[in-house]
Write a protein that binds this DNA or RNA. Sequence first.
DNA 1: GCCCAGGGAATCG
DNA 2: CGATTCCATGGG
Length: 278
Amino acid sequence: MLIKQIDKNLLVYDIGRFSLPDTLDCGQAFRWSRSYDGSWQAVVNNRLLRVTEAEGGILLYNCTEQEFADTWAAYFDFGRDYDTICAEISVDPILKKAADICGGIHLLRQSPWETLCSFIISQNNNIPRIKGIIDRLCQNFGEKIEGGHTFPTPQAISKLTIDDLAPLRSGFRAKYILDAAKKVAEKTVDLDSLYRLSTDEARNELMKINGVGPKVADCVLLFAYGKLDAFPQDVWIKRTMQTLFGGELPEVALPYAGIVQQILFHYARNGGLKEYEK
DNA sequence: GCCCAGGGAATCG
DNA sequence: CGATTCCATGGG
């Protein structure tokens, strides 16, 4: 990986296999939006980040080398060798097909609270509406900053009532959001401690929250804590696993189960199952 | 009107 | 135990 400061912006190149649009628009993060000029922007970690594909690499606007090293390299998972992972799983012909199309997806390493809250909202919901609810959550209760609003803290949300959350139009999920905020704010569930726990132990902690079952918990374990043995099973993945593999992931994929889950999810949503369904 | 959406809790047998 | 049913809301 190489880095070049160009005025106030940072160009990152020679990063191996990486698709910016697939990574930002594959349903693991909900705040990214694409501008007319093709660049992407979101408020991440309490600051507005704008990114675009440029000169064979990725250009981060208004970003220093130091900030990249401290924050964004890990956020975009640039330290991991996705070429090798794709090569390994491509031993399986079906996985090869999926990886050829969707292998540029990187796992984003997102903040635990935002990820937890977002995937509570995701349950029995669709992606456009999830984005809308999260947007209204930030607009109403986040801090106003240059270019948008931050994701509200658990402390801020824990002081609210169900009625306060009515503008979100989040339906039955409002009570889950409040329970999560309270338990996280008062550390009944200590999100900082989950990094050190095994996946099973951490999952049990997360499931102490009302509205958090195995699927939501696994999304948090994968997208916030980077636990690759978490394998979120939503309606799409259940369908995909049955259609492609008769329910069982090929053994070669097991060390990277969470990454393969993302690839398969995106593959299925983009019509990859059609040729296998009769 | 129907069905579905990156599910989970409550309530049955 | 496993299997239904309900939960709000919005789009197709």
